[in-house]
Design a protein around this nucleic acid. Sequence first.
DNA 1: TCCCTCGGACACTCAAACAT
DNA 2: TGTTTGAGTGTCCGAGGGAA
Length: 167
Amino acid sequence: MASDQAKNAGAVTQEHHMPPYQAYGAYSPPFPVYYDPSHPEPNGGPHPAPPYIYHYPPPGMMYPYPPPGRPIGFPPYAPPPQTNFQRVKRKQVKMACTNCANACKRCDEHRPCERCVKYGIPETCVDGVRKERQKGIKRGPYKRKNKSGGSDTATSPTHNATFESAS
DNA sequence: TCCCTCGGACACTCAAACAT
DNA sequence: TGTTTGAGTGTCCGAGGGAA
């Protein structure tokens, strides 16, 4: 399989041509930001206030469109040697409309959503219905994680995402 | 060039299991 | 009773292919 790195290196797809700040309001910010407090600013300039913003995607990171203020294609991607970069999680909408869900495409929280408007089918842009989760399912014994040392919890993706969903 | 399909990775939710 | 775990469920990335 193509590695996650290759997948997540995130070519700009045809659906990413619109202004990202408008098209991806669900993202905050609309582009991944990675930081490594031990790593200096790549161009040798002064540190911005943390988190330090890197303008290239570390391995395994999605980077669907270029960050603002940088020309398209900047820079030639050179993966950093370190591995302690943190991944910004993909943000999902609470509920995709039926059209986007069927097409497995990104939706937004507005109705009609941007994709339905674009394709001229705003009248069919409605929320789907979530299935109710089954109850009473018995589960096996849990493996308790080691809470001491902190490294496990400190690297929890939920708590390490540079930008958590504020909603 | 644009759109559709779809496999599968990833994100989110929340009840069960567990600790106190 | 509060916290943690992890399975269930949903979203959507990205490759491939067809139509215009």
